[in-house]
Simulated scan of single mutants.
Amino acid sequence: MPLEVTAIGPALSVSNESDIASVRYDGSGLSVVVARTPLDGNRFLGLRITFQRVHGFRLLDESDLAAYWAAPGFVRGHHVLAVTSGGWSAEEDLRQGHKLRRCEWLVATGNGCLSLFASEDPKIEEGEYDPEA
């Protein structure tokens, strides 16, 4: 099944230097901070992406998702994508032998990437952050 995604949030360049700065999970909600542009000291311009009702996630290096980047349905220029077809959910359906209805999301950077299942649209906040964010 070919990968298809929909861009979510602001259109921003995704540089090779961008990365996942932190991931915090509290049992149902997940907060991800993406470092986009370094500032003085340890601070950086970035995004805080918050997902509620999370029921699965995985953190991978961008090279582990190389097939995603090469797919004709991949949308560039966004850190947050809704995966509508052909992603991790499709892999799980094939592995388990039956199809489940899941909402899948991808947080993409030039380094670490987060793939997750969450029942609600994420909240995305742009701002200045530090590694402890």
Rank of each mutant, 00 (worst) to 15 (best):
E91N: 02
I8F: 11
A67T: 11
R102C: 02
A66E: 14
G9P: 09
D130V: 11
V80T: 14
L47H: 04
F44G: 01
R36P: 01
V32G: 06
T84S: 13
L81N: 06
P38F: 10
C113T: 02
R48K: 15
L30A: 03
N16K: 14
D64S: 15
R53N: 14
A70E: 14
S115F: 00
D19I: 00
L81H: 06
G127P: 09
E104K: 01
D61W: 14
R43T: 11
A21L: 01
A71N: 02
A71Q: 01
M1I: 12
H55Y: 15
D26R: 07
E92A: 13
G77P: 07
A70V: 00
D40K: 12
G77K: 06
S63R: 15
G73M: 05
G87Q: 01
S63G: 03
V23Q: 07
A82E: 14
A118Q: 04
E17I: 12
H78I: 05
T84E: 10
V83H: 02
L60Q: 11
S22Q: 10
C113F: 01
Q52M: 08
R48P: 00
E62Q: 11
S22N: 10
E120H: 13
L30Y: 02
A90W: 09
P131D: 08
A21Y: 00
K99E: 11
L100G: 08
A67L: 06
S63I: 05
R48S: 09
A82R: 15
G77Q: 07
E4D: 13
F74R: 06
L106F: 05
A133W: 13
P2S: 14
D26M: 06
L100Q: 12
H79C: 09
P72C: 01
L39R: 15
H98R: 13
G127V: 11
E125H: 10
V34W: 02
P122H: 04
D40T: 10
S31Y: 02
